[in-house]
């Protein structure tokens, strides 16, 4: 079964500050919406643990938005 945006938001509940997560536009760059390097780190580990996917450097460079992350998770797992 494919993961959904809601699944991702639940997974990232402690990775991204709550106020940022609540307003996150899945089509806009995460970095432009207040998701910093620390939050990106927590997101990547949470994603690895929850969905069993590992992000390489090359793949990581393409993950700009939450929609990108969702597409990556559903393709990789």
């Amino acid at each position: 079964m494919s993961a959904t945006l809601e699944d991702l938001k639940k997974t990232f509940a402690f990775a991204i500050p709550a106020d940022v997560l609540a307003k996150l536009d899945p089509a806009k760059p995460l970095a432009a919406q207040g998701v910093d390097s620390l939050a990106m780190t927590a997101m990547a580990v949470a994603m690895q643990n929850a969905f069993g996917v590992k992000v390489s450097v090359e793949e990581g460079l393409k993950l700009k938005t939450l929609n990108d992350v969702l597409a990556f998770v559903n393709k990789a797992r």
Binding site: P29, S37, A44, V55, G60, L61
Partner: peptide
């Protein structure tokens, strides 16, 4: 852990 300002919000710190 630190990241150059031009690369903040990336996965560099994770890697």
């Amino acid at each position: 852990g630190m990241v150059h300002p031009a690369y903040r919000g990336s996965l560099i710190l994770f890697h």
